[in-house]
Nucleic acid binder design. Structure first.
Length: 587
RNA sequence: GUGGGUGUAGCUCAGUUGGAUAGAGCAUCUGCCUUCUAAGCAGAGGGUCGUGGGUUCGACUCCCGCCACCCGCGCCA
């Protein structure tokens, strides 16, 4: 049985709202509770000021009235929470040490944290469409964001109680196959007998086919023919296509394995190829789509741009495109998974496409009386090269994801070997794998996803400051403490001395903010809020670690500090797990 | 042309939706390893928040104008 609230900002908001009601305010009031600067308290309610302004009342007087009402609340009356007014009318709240330790006791296990957090989304089905590489090409640095941010969002949603369907919408049915098959046939390449890196060989063949088609009109025509044959189910080309996909999937899985990413559904665009006729039919029949220059398109009359900028759902040559399969995919997902939300992770350049898609689906579903899930386009910025321009897929210069990960692991291995030469090499290799891969992952997660970022080896592989190694280091030091005292990490607040030192209190106060950071990340699906929180928590822990020795003679003090360590470990582990990052017991 | 994004310390970035003295990391400088892992800790310097107006008790945050860069805009995904 829990003795204190999980999310104190909610609790305090409730207190304020109750107090406000007793002074006669019934509506139009927003408590606006947020974590406070430690100088002022643990939380602050700023809502008095805007309300007083709107009502033309004196904020200080109003705050005083609310304060008097707050004092009647049992938690304030018994001294668990102290309240005061500051400045023009801020209300500051400070939690007493016993309340902090009560929280740490109530929520001292991952199960307890997850149980509370899962109330946020309570079992709704959410489809997340992320990663989505194209077959016949290697995953490159540009795929990091969708994959890593997408995975973190899936884990965040799942931790907050959603039933997440991870769907990798592979690009396996595009125009690239005509040129690729052309090159394969020209070289008489045997896909079953490629030596070495098969996916790299496919990529070479694709580039060759692409160059052939570009230089020579008849080759371009041949490529088109190969594509048509494939789309008509020609056995030879189908066999090639299946082989190409098998090779591609193997290379994707290598990356996903390293990143710990596992999909529930891997339905490529090809999966929808027999479902597009229904889309043409329904959109035409319902009057949403019309012919224009030989193509089937959707205009949105009420929209200032999409009234003239078409959403092309069938090309003039009769072939389907991205828009078609996306429409068919929404319908399939709604029928199959009954989601409350469908979330797409792609870079921001596709905003128009998704806006048009969502508008079209909305009207389509209204006509067909299908309930509309919340369609969300979660965008992220572009990864830029040194020249400030987007790293291009076909430039041949793009950094392969595989190489990036290997470089990260290599660098990590050198550092570990230098810092900790006594560890056996196999241990150092394992540790390096976790640190290298997750330094890269974290570098992507820790910044606000909407901005572009400059690709730089040093940045992605940095091991200092706000990085995964810093967080993992804090975790490793906690494990080390428990090894030293020969105990397993667990909280034991009943036997602990009261929280006392500045560092102990600062750490406890940081720990109880976990639910706030979690909700903040969830609200806009921005993992960087959680990263910032975990980084700050690690910083507060490091200060505590340097100031307050844990392994001391006084048993009650030692128990308290060990409990703080266990609590910190728990929150770090849980938070990192939400981000998709495993922890290490030593490094 | 039009729509969107970005602009905060030398560099790379945060800034919880209008709150209290704008914060980190890197780089520079000063201290701290016989004591639980120094990938760490304590501290110093470094800012006209692109720019000009406006709104108000209060603006990096909201509104308007301007500048710079990036991206999208009919058969790629």
């Amino acid at each position: 049985m829990n003795t204190v609230a999980f999310d104190f900002s909610h609790l305090i908001e409730k207190l304020v709202m109750e107090a406000v009601r007793t002074v006669g305010i019934t509506d139009g009031f927003n408590a606006d509770v947020k974590p406070a600067d430690p100088r002022f308290g643990d939380f602050q309610a700023n809502g008095i000021l805007p309300y007083a302004k709107a009502q033309k009342r004196n904020p200080r007087e109003l705050a005083t009235a609310v304060l008097e009402a707050l004092k009647k609340n049992p938690l304030v009356a018994d001294g668990s929470i102290t309240v005061e007014i500051a400045g023009p009318g801020f209300i500051n709240f400070k939690l007493q040490p016993k309340v902090l330790s009560a929280w740490l006791d109530d929520y001292g296990s991952m199960a307890a944290l997850e149980k509370e957090s899962s109330k946020l989304l309570g079992g709704q089905n959410i489809v997340v469409d992320y990663s989505s590489p194209n077959t016949a090409k290697q995953m490159h640095v540009g795929h990091i964001r969708s994959t890593v941010i997408g995975e973190a969002i899936c884990r965040l949603l799942a931790f907050c109680g959603a039933n997440v369907i991870r769907d990798n919408h592979i690009g396996d049915w595009g125009t690239q196959f005509g040129m690729l098959i052309l090159a394969i046939k020209t070289e008489k390449a045997d896909l079953g007998k490629i030596e070495g890196d098969a996916i790299a060989e496919l990529e070479r063949l694709y580039k060759k086919g692409s160059a052939m088609a570009k230089d020579n009109e008849s080759d371009l025509e041949r490529a088109r023919q190969e594509l048509v044959k494939l789309q008509n189910g020609d056995p030879e080309n189908m066999a090639l296509w299946e082989n190409i996909n098998a090779i591609s999937y193997r290379s994707f899985d290598e990356i996903y394995e390293r990143l710990g990413v596992h999909f529930d559904k891997v339905l490529g665009e090809s999966f929808y190829r027999d479902k597009v006729d229904e889309v043409y039919g329904e959109l035409t029949e319902s009057g949403l789509a019309q012919m224009s220059d030989g193509a089937l398109v959707v205009f949105h009359e009420e929209h200032p741009r999409f009234n003239t900028q078409p959403f092309i759902i069938r090309k003039s040559d009769g072939a389907s495109n991205y828009a078609t399969t996306d429409l068919a995919t929404v319908l399939y997902r709604v029928r199959e998974f009954h989601p409350s939300q469908i979330i797409y992770l792609t870079d921001a350049r596709q905003s128009d496409h998704f806006e048009q898609l969502f508008l079209t689906v909305k009207k389509w579903f209204e006509k067909k009386n299908i309930s509309m899930p919340w369609l969300r386009h979660v965008t992220f910025g572009t990864i830029l090269g040194e020249d400030g321009k987007a790293i291009k897929t076909r430039s041949g210069e793009s950094v392969k994801l595989k190489d990036l990960l290997s470089e990260g692991v290599e660098r990590a291995f050198r550092i570990i070997s230098e810092k900790n030469p006594d560890l056996p090499e196999s241990d150092r290799r394992q540790i390096a794998e976790v640190i290298g891969v997750n330094a890269i992952r974290y570098a992507d997660l820790m910044q606000n996803r909407s901005s572009d970022y400059l690709f730089s080896w040093d940045k992605l592989l940095s091991f200092e400051g706000n990085t995964a190694p810093y967080l993992l280091y804090a975790v490793a030091r906690i494990y080390s403490i428990f090894r030293k005292v020969n105990a397993v990490p667990a909280v034991a607040w009943k036997a602990a001395a009261p929280l006392e030192t500045e560092q102990e209190l600062a750490l406890a106060r940081k720990l109880i903010e976990f639910p706030v950071a979690l909700s903040q990340s969830l609200q806009d699906l921005r993992p960087h809020f959680l990263c910032s929180y975990l980084y700050e928590l690690s910083g507060v822990f490091s200060t505590f670690y340097n100031q307050d020795k844990v392994n001391v003679e006084d048993l009650a003090v030692r128990t308290k500090r060990l409990s703080l360590c266990a609590g910190t470990l728990l929150v770090l582990k849980t938070g990192l797990n939400v981000l998709g990052i495993p922890v290490l017991e030593r490094m």
